[in-house]
Every structure is written in structure tokens, then in C-alpha cells.
Simulated assay, not measured.
Amino acid sequence: MQLIDLTRTLDPADRERLPEELRALAGVVAPQVTYAHPTGDGRQEFARAMGCGVEDLPDGEGWGSETLDGFSSHLGTHVDAPLHYGSTCEGRPARTITDIAVDELWCEAIVLDLRGRCRPDTAIEVAALRDAIEDTAAEVPAGGAVLLRTGQEGFGPGDPEFFRYPGMSREGTLFLADRGAKVLGTDAAGWDLPFGVMARAFREGRDNAVLWDGHRAGREREVFIVQQLANLAALPPAGFKVAFFPLKLARASAAPARVVAFV
């Protein structure tokens, strides 16, 4: 069995790599991190904790530690709980990330290769999803995961295209849910269309149905949405399982996760 990591690395340097006009979105890309090295600030921290002087430390070293700031629950590769979509789901109070059992996030999965079937800043059509499913020669696993490979793996936070991605609509989300999928993942920075695209469509049509309709479909059918997946190119179309294990963050609408495929 091969384990394939599908998780983006959380690198605080990515905040500075973002184009200036996208810096406001840094909180969903990477945290701010203060590093304490065993030969640097870690010595001072350890000495204070032990009530001794730096000169008393074995080998003159302390510990390595990091302090994280600006750590969004929707940071990097993360799992959305139903509470993220609204206060209710399927007519009941929406579940938080700690309400979801780990066995619900360990499941069979398929990859839908949508490259050439979708475009940046444009909704992925149901027909494209249907054709991609047929290409896998496998059914959507009941209670399992569908992972969308849109081609966004070619872009990092320093590329303007990182936040110009194909998005999902209400119709596309419900199409996958109706097929039996419980976990919906994407290699894109977001599940819906980019915020600017949705805002422009609303201004032009004054129809609020276009605002976050992909996520809000999760109020009608409970699904767990996973964004900013990496390394989908290393996966076969079907015949593998994935663990989507988020941090156990009390009362939260989401949490960063280590996502690993077992092939």
C-alpha cells in the first residue's frame, strides 16, 4: 500500500508571495509563525520555564517551538463542517467539525479529471461532472468522496491564477450529493466561484442565488467540503481510500486537516 499526501504545506512565506491585490486573503493560505530555534529564542524560553540560566542548559541548547497567529479554521487544506454553510442542515441544527465522527472521514474515493472541461472564473457544468465520472469507469462510492482535479495544482499562492479557479454551483454540488458522495474535495482555493466573480454576478443581476450557492447547497444535502487539496495527479481514478482528518477544534465550522490517500 502506498500513502499519498494530499495536503498543502502551511508555509508562512506564502503570505508574502501573494500578489498585493490578494493579500487580504492571506488568512486562508498560511498562518503567521514566530519560530524559536533551540540555539536561539528557544534557549531563553526553556531557561525561563526551568528557572535556570542559559549557561546551565545541556549543550547550551533549549527547545524548538513555534507560535502561530492568524490561524483561520479555513486555512490551507481544510474540512468544512455543515455549520460553515449555515445554522441548519437538512432541517436540523448544522453539525460542527467535532460532531463529525472520524469514520465518516475515512472513505472510498474517486478522482474526476476536469482539466479541459472547465475554465477559470466559470462554474463547472453538470455535464462535465457526468462525463468525468464515466471516464473513471467507476461509480461514485456511497458515503464516499469525490475529488475534483481542475488543473489548479499548477499554481501556487504567488500566482494570480491561484485565486482564479473553476468553481462549483448549487446544481453541481447537489448532482454529486445525489450520486451518493458525502465528501466533496477540490484542488482549487475555494469550492464556489471566486468571490469577485460571485459579487459581480450579483451586482449585474441582483439575484442573491448566485452568492455562495455551491456551499449553501450543503444545507439541503449534508456534505463535507474539502478545499486546497494537493497532489491529485498522483492518484488513480478510483480504487483507493482517503482519510480527511481535521484538527479537533471545539464548536468550529471547519478545521485544517492532514489528508492522506491509501492506494
Rank of each mutant, 00 (worst) to 15 (best):
G62Q: 08
W63M: 10
W63F: 13
G64H: 04
G64M: 07
S65Q: 10
E66V: 05
E66H: 01
T67R: 01
L68V: 00
L68R: 08
L68T: 00
G70V: 03
F71T: 03
S73A: 08
S73H: 11
H74Y: 05
H74S: 14
H74A: 11
L75G: 06
L75P: 05
G76H: 02
G76I: 01
G76S: 05
T77E: 03
H78W: 01
H78E: 02
V79G: 02
D80I: 07
D80R: 10
A81Q: 08
P82K: 06
P82G: 02
P82A: 02
L83R: 12
H84C: 10
H84V: 04
H84E: 06
G86F: 02
S87V: 00
T88H: 08
C89W: 02
E90A: 12
E90M: 12
E90S: 04
G91M: 00
P93N: 02
P93W: 03
A94V: 00
A94S: 12
I97C: 06
D99Y: 05
D99V: 00
D99H: 06
I100A: 06
I100G: 07
I100S: 03
A101R: 14
A101S: 14
V102Y: 09
V102D: 15
D103I: 04
E104F: 04
W106N: 14
C107P: 01
E108W: 10
E108V: 00
E108H: 09
A109Q: 04
A109G: 05
I110K: 09
V111H: 03
V111D: 02
V111P: 05
V111Y: 05
L114W: 13
R115A: 05
R115G: 02
G116K: 11
R117K: 15
C118F: 13
R119D: 08
P120T: 10
P120K: 11
D121I: 06
D121Y: 11
D121K: 13
T122P: 11
T122K: 14
T122G: 10
T122Q: 15
A123D: 15
E125D: 13
V126L: 11
V126F: 06
V126M: 11
A127E: 15
A127N: 13
A128H: 11
L129K: 07
L129C: 11
L129Y: 08
R130G: 11
D131E: 15
I133Q: 12
E134H: 12
E134W: 10
E134Q: 13
D135E: 15
D135T: 05
A137Q: 14
A137W: 06
A137V: 01
E139L: 08
V140R: 13
V140I: 14
P141R: 10
P141I: 04
P141T: 05
A142V: 09
G143I: 11
G144S: 02
G144K: 02
G144M: 02
A145G: 07
A145I: 08
A145M: 04
V146G: 11
L147V: 10
L147S: 09
L148R: 14
R149M: 14
R149Y: 15
R149H: 15
T150R: 06
T150C: 04
T150S: 11
T150Y: 07
G151I: 05
G151M: 05
G151N: 08
Q152S: 12
Q152K: 10
E153W: 01
E153N: 07
E153S: 10
E153Y: 01
F155T: 07
G156W: 08
G156Q: 06
P157W: 07
D159C: 14
E161H: 08
E161I: 04
F162V: 12
F163T: 15
F163K: 14
R164I: 07
R164G: 09
